[in-house]
Design a protein around this nucleic acid. Sequence first.
DNA 1: GATCTGGGAGTGAACGTTCATTCACTGATA
DNA 2: TATCAGTGAATGAACGTTCACTCCCAGATC
Lengths: 212, 212
Amino acid sequence: MNLTAPPCPEATAVIHPRQAEILRAVRQAFVEKGFDGASMQDLARAAGMSVGNFYRYFPSKAAIIGAMVLMDAQEIRADFAAILAAPSPLTALRHGLRERIFGADCAKDSALWAEIDAAARRMPEVAEAHRMIESEVRGQLIAVFAAGTGLPLAEANRRFSTHAAFLLTLFKAAACADAMLGVDIPALRAMIAETLDARLDEILRHATPPPD
Amino acid sequence: MNLTAPPCPEATAVIHPRQAEILRAVRQAFVEKGFDGASMQDLARAAGMSVGNFYRYFPSKAAIIGAMVLMDAQEIRADFAAILAAPSPLTALRHGLRERIFGADCAKDSALWAEIDAAARRMPEVAEAHRMIESEVRGQLIAVFAAGTGLPLAEANRRFSTHAAFLLTLFKAAACADAMLGVDIPALRAMIAETLDARLDEILRHATPPPD
DNA sequence: GATCTGGGAGTGAACGTTCATTCACTGATA
DNA sequence: TATCAGTGAATGAACGTTCACTCCCAGATC
């Protein structure tokens, strides 16, 4: 397997509409079989086209994977833009996290999260996209904390960078929790959400003006 | 890749000493390259033997992987046996969790945890072993909670099964946290440990006789 | 309107590589 | 001598990628 494909475009890169269409189509194949387990033939079936045609749009299989992860990064960026534009960003964040934790998409995304985590250690394209997503999310969380507490960004970073990392860690754990058999999943998710809330309350206590 | 190898022996199965030696040797190859990415030739190099010799000890590559995960399960079982035999099981559990979270092995195991999580969805041998480990850990945690609170096992299960699942989830998250770049890892681990402690304190408040 | 041409999307067999597994063979030991 | 541990080339399958080819469409030309 060739892992030396050219690097991925940045998350700001324009993904061609046909590329995006292809990526949406192949996602489920990756969910079911993993990155290595899904062959180009599997992907071709999922996308309803021939294997050779992929190479008009992506230079390699690894690049397909990297682009798909980047497309996720762009969605997450849009989500945070909405949260930061809300009248009360911390409340919007709470709401958004709960929706994600309790929503149907949490279960659907867990396989892919696990696969991305594992693959980031062995595929440069995934490693780069993964690093970018996590760095982006933490940065955005800190921006929300700054907006929610009225602190300058640098001060919010100093005080809450560990909180940001913790929230991301816990959120990822929530995404994987549904894979546990014999567990009351709603109760587990509720406990996770409660833990997230406690940390957000802790942050809110740092607010300089009255909390938003 | 053939995924139809015979199922793994149970965690109570005797792992031949030579098998155990081989499994210890190949572990690092799996850590570095992942289950799919590590070829039989890579494993052979790591074990210092020829590729054909593996098949004297394991029926397939998948069986090697499954056995390695099961060997982990046996270690975890032994760890819990020691905790349950301690004069104060809950304190011993706290201590054990902290050692794991702050110890050097946490970083070393994270790649493998991620790989096992991802692989459990696509390799029957790993899925079975993974299911067994998680079920075992949760059961053992509940046994520790029962011992620590003086409650009957069935009652401890009723009250704390979600706590057990939460602790396992958070512990796994801690194992993966060190892969985050640009994060103060010790501070993050401390926050995770603090969260675990809070949940254990919560459990301790259910003690019927004075807490141990 | 009919025909030609160029460009783009799509095809799938062929290709070279890599893979996990097999098996005839070797060497050491009791 | 028999048994067991070990060997590594051969094997067939699977893989990602390439490439000669096809078809379609739009625009240009007659």
